[in-house]
Design a protein around this nucleic acid. Structure first.
Lengths: 111, 111
DNA sequence: ATATTATATTCATATATTCGAATTAAACAA
DNA sequence: TTGTTTAATTCGAATATATGAATATAATAT
């Protein structure tokens, strides 16, 4: 019974395993954008962007609305961004730790 | 320069794409456990558990300490759990939405 | 109807990930 | 030293994922 939620959790996290998809998520963090607004921000081919958007849509990380010829994408739920931000904080702390360690080793070499 | 953080972010999220690894994370959520304590909780072969633990270690999602013949695993940073919990909340809300929709459709069919 | 612009899908290939089986290593006891 | 227990690694086959290229669709204008 618990298994199902781990499956779903794993599946949604699958969407976060591509740097491009994370870029898309952060590009949408302050509001919706159309595909053609996103494209130049990402340095990516249109078809490939569409593929990434399809993944994000399928996992309900983003939702869309059509207006005329344009399709607007936005983050489906603010908590998704919140979770991403927290993970990013962890990463930044890890990087800071690593750098501290590097400086320490350099100092030791001097002595 | 921003690219690098998206790469790292994608890489750490890679660890969350396996239901087993998520089970491990939640099994460790209230404190450290040895590999042999973890194994029976997960219904998984020892070697495979070790492989998953290696992934989690490599991405610094968990850290270890050895005591005699046992190796204790624990979550490296409370924020990792926090991020997982928030994603889980999103999933639970999605599931609740889906169920609401299903009930609505059933009701409509009656009329 | 046709053209145009915006977006999505399909397919093939390259690459990555997963897991079981077998083996290895590390700590300790006898 | 040998054996035992605990945990990690290596390797190969099956499976999954990512990307480019080509094509398709949807909305609108002419």
């Amino acid at each position: 019974m618990n298994r199902k939620i781990f499956e779903l959790h794993a599946q949604i996290c699958q969407t976060f395993t591509s740097p491009k998809r994370l870029e898309i998520i952060y590009a949408l963090c302050d509001g919706e954008k159309t595909v053609s607004e996103l494209a130049p921000l990402l340095v990516i081919r249109q078809a490939n962007l569409s593929q990434h958007l399809a993944v994000l849509r399928q996992k309900k990380v983003v939702v869309t609305r059509r207006k005329g010829v344009n399709i607007y994408y936005r983050i489906a739920h603010p908590k998704i961004l919140q979770a991403c931000d927290i993970m990013r904080e962890v990463l930044l702390e890890q990087i800071a730790e690593d750098e501290k360690l590097v400086r320490l080793i350099k100092k030791e070499k001097k002595n």
